[in-house]
Amino acid sequence: MVTTELTVRAPAKINLHLGVGAPRPDGFHPLVTVYQAVGLYDDLTVRAAPGWALGVDLPDWMPAGVVPTGGANIVDRAAALLAEHHGVVRSGEVHVAKAIPVAGGMAGGSADAAAALVALDRLWGLHTPDDEMLALAAQLGSDVPFALLGGTALGTGRGELVEPVTDRGTWWWVVVPAETGLSTPSVYRHFDEMFPDAPAEPVPADALLRALAEGDPWALADALHNDLEAPAVDLRPELGELIERGEAAGALRGIVSGSGPTCVFLCGSADHARALAADLTDPAHPVVLAANGPVAGAHLVSYA
């Protein structure tokens, strides 16, 4: 049967551990990170069409124009890369329904790229092997391979080399997006300014991996680590104030997600997460979300 329309769902990520080393000669920072995919999703729908078109729908709480279109979106690049890899013509009508915070350290763009690779591979009947798909994903961005994989995984290199890890927990998070994004390159630059003597090798994730294997939320809370939190908070002091407020309200631990400015709070249960989300919702933070993890990576949810 020829597929003419399908939808792929891809999750947001948080970094449970993010160790950052001094810049390499190529300008990238070596990373040791532990990713977790959480239950906030973007949905990407593709339809067979002779040309190429991309549209994006945003929820009411995202400002208009925050996601580029007209050739500048990572979905356009993912489609072009996959088409070039197989020597086919890029075609289709693509629609992205956003729900992952934009420029928030949760890899929403990477999720869209992963969803595009999965969706267009099926729409075009390419059957790309997994290892080739991961290699293409790595060309698009450091977080894209994990968006394909999902679950909980250790990332090394610049984050693009991923392998699943043992995770015996079901974790509940409260996610607080910021109204204004924070540029990832600017956070890394500020990290270099604040820590000019950063070690070449990032902080390892041993304690975090043990906590995941034990499935103990208090151990996980103690082990959460993010080397980019200090520069993000220095650039945006209100993030530190939000973390203090969330922990005072009962979170097991609060942390900046990736390069920020989204902050995430570990909770002990679904009810705990819902209660904390209600406590943190106010005029300064009108959108507060509860999500569980780990969840699956980019996956098909419907086709015709």
Rank of each mutant, 00 (worst) to 15 (best):
M194K: 14
P199A: 09
A270G: 10
E193V: 14
A223P: 02
H272F: 02
L300S: 02
I243M: 00
G297I: 06
V301P: 04
D227K: 09
A219C: 08
G215N: 09
F265P: 03
A270I: 10
A284G: 13
G268E: 08
L280E: 03
A221T: 08
A278E: 13
G268P: 02
A205M: 07
P283E: 11
A219T: 12
P283D: 08
G297M: 00
E247V: 12
A211N: 07
A198K: 10
F265Y: 05
G293V: 06
E238F: 11
A221S: 01
E193L: 12
P231H: 03
G215Q: 13
G240E: 01
D206Q: 13
A223M: 06
L212W: 05
D282E: 10
R245Q: 07
R245W: 10
V287T: 15
S257M: 06
V301H: 00
G240D: 02
A205V: 03
L239K: 12
L280F: 08
A198Q: 07
L242S: 10
G260H: 05
P286G: 11
A221L: 03
T281M: 04
M194S: 01
V288N: 05
D222I: 00
S259Q: 04
P199V: 12
A221G: 03
A221E: 04
A198N: 05
A232S: 05
D234N: 14
C267V: 08
P199S: 08
